[in-house]
Design a protein around this nucleic acid. Structure first.
Lengths: 107, 107
DNA sequence: AGGCTGTGTAAGAAGTTGCTTACACAGCCT
DNA sequence: AGGCTGTGTAAGCAACTTCTTACACAGCCT
């Protein structure tokens, strides 16, 4: 989880993920979408994403094709869900207390 | 989103979030759970979390009580969901193509 | 008032990240 | 074979993080 969350913390990397979200893209193609940044910088981001398991890489002759690998986000999603779960439990408790309050004191 | 994701990228901060997940805790109480780290370090993490909107702070006399604020994770959750959505669309396409393949060529 | 308790802030050191330029090198094409 | 194309890696630098210690200061208690 740690690697994935650290990887996703960077806005450029998130942008790359959005780019390869709906299909493979070559490294060069991706790099051209970041005209403000050098190509090696993008390449390094791609490596971080691959190491974190957030993208898949495939060699195709000369090129390397990257594609999103959303399962890499599972642990992160689990964390977020865990954070919500307690809140929901509490909310549920409030609702039930409220229901009781509605039901009983009416005498 | 950026602040929240950056904040969550740190394992100590995630641990703090888990700590305050099911109820308020004072800064000092939280700090004692990290014996390997100085109290100011924890205080700084708490500030990052508060700035990112991931925890609520409330003063109670001397102390400050922190509680989880899971809505702070909404944008992050949205991002993860967005990453999955394309994959699911694709999967859906596959399933439908498969169903057609099952239905038609049978003559 | 004066001292303790609880907590944040300041300053600075050490490590990490994110970039850049320069280089390496595999694969395609003629 | 030789050159172009596509891409990763190395080295180094500036900026940012994450600690630590030292300090500040409000609120409680006697």
């Amino acid at each position: 989880m740690d690697d994935a969350l650290r990887a996703v913390a960077d806005p450029t990397r998130r942008a790359i993920m959005e780019l390869v979200r709906d299909g493979e893209r070559s490294a060069g193609d991706i790099a051209t979408r970041f005209p403000a940044m050098s190509r090696p910088a993008v390449s390094q981001h791609l490596r971080v994403l691959a190491d974190a398991g957030l993208v898949d890489v495939r060699r195709d002759g000369n090129r390397r094709l990257y594609a999103l690998r959303p399962e890499g986000l599972d642990d992160a999603a689990g964390f977020i869900e865990r954070m919500w779960s307690a809140q929901l439990r509490r909310l549920k408790g409030v609702v039930e207390a409220d229901r009781e309050a509605d039901a009983s004191p009416r005498r």
